[in-house]
Write a protein that binds this DNA or RNA. Sequence first.
DNA 1: GGAAATTTGTGCGTATGTATC
DNA 2: AGATACATACGCACAAATTTC
Lengths: 234, 234
Amino acid sequence: MPALIDIKLQKVNYYEQVADILEDSILDGSLVENGKLPSEADLASKFNVSRTIIRESLKLLKERGLVQMKTGNGSYITRPEASTVSGLLNRFIKLDNISDNDIYVIRYSLELTATRIAAEKASDTDLDKMEELTDEMERQKDDIDRRVLLDCDFHVAIARASGNVLLAVFIESISEILRKVIRRGVLVPGRNEDGIVRHRKILTALRKRDPDLAETTMREHLEVSWDNMLRNKA
Amino acid sequence: MPALIDIKLQKVNYYEQVADILEDSILDGSLVENGKLPSEADLASKFNVSRTIIRESLKLLKERGLVQMKTGNGSYITRPEASTVSGLLNRFIKLDNISDNDIYVIRYSLELTATRIAAEKASDTDLDKMEELTDEMERQKDDIDRRVLLDCDFHVAIARASGNVLLAVFIESISEILRKVIRRGVLVPGRNEDGIVRHRKILTALRKRDPDLAETTMREHLEVSWDNMLRNKA
DNA sequence: GGAAATTTGTGCGTATGTATC
DNA sequence: AGATACATACGCACAAATTTC
């Protein structure tokens, strides 16, 4: 074995190369035709490879959240969704046995930041949307699943109001993951209503454009919420 | 068009179903054989589909960070890496034109949290590792690329020392994305050395097991670092 | 509304790389 | 070291779904 370096340069396969080129074309917008990709056959002749290669490349791009195939119709460019991130995080969580607490710590950190920024940047439309979500949550408070969804939507609305799209994606993904946990919390007697009251307090603070107060009310809300979860677990 | 509901249930294709089943098997550990998957031919006969379907399914799983194919050898189970997350985030960033500032806000939030926890939880081994990284960074301070890598490694080491694997993945991904930005900051005269001094201060605070001090020193470090970037941009 | 054209979905054969005896 | 077995990489043909005229 005379090899000085045993880093084996993985020979790049066609499908991987094609996928990377296609990704660049999509991100640059150079391949687009009102959002529709050329047919697999066209791409195959364009790249001088078989349709098999194109299809396998598209599978990679599909999982990157960049394209979507429709049988008998064509392939379309899509944007990655928060669910792409949450799916990925879920795999980490399962493989590494990550605890609810560890996830909650991240949620805590990100949401406090988002709330603070939202207090400064939220538009009236954003605030009205949050109010509408809170009203709807109150109306649906006995339909637990629906209520939990609206609860999460409220938090995501705050994140979006921060104007930081990436932050919103993170928070949305984590909300999706914590939905089960939040649901358990809501089942603690009295906590369902308490959560709604706290949402209103947060909203009031946001309307006052008071970052400190907004952060404080959000912190209290999250702490109680976390406490609920622990109770229902024990 | 008598359709009351025009939600068209996308008929699920074989390759997607097979991918999902395989993913579950991998996550449950039920398909594993010392980390090696059955051959494509075996899987094909097992699922009663063609090898093409299996291959396309594996492409999906590959992009999910769960498997890796080796030509002429076989397919192996892998764990998703932080680079899978950073790749995904990069797509969001490009598509949504997310600013460096928005990314930095998230980094700020997560790293302060990680530092605080690390002050309580870091093992002596963790701390020695950080010291080693700082020493090496000082030695390599004139090799900018290498220095920046070591800089990021230091921050990731803190994140890992928090014991929160998911938090560490987030921070590692964001570090990867901000590497270019951090590099620009290091080029500001005097800031290269300043950064190393600040790393030592953070390390000292961690060794003292003082969460407040650790958070403060990290906050100062990140603020200066951000300021550097702005200067070099203008 | 139906036939033709187009597109993606699926199956199988061949080429090439890797490990093993 | 070479031949053999077995793995993935690649190409082509046909089926099924969708759109179009």
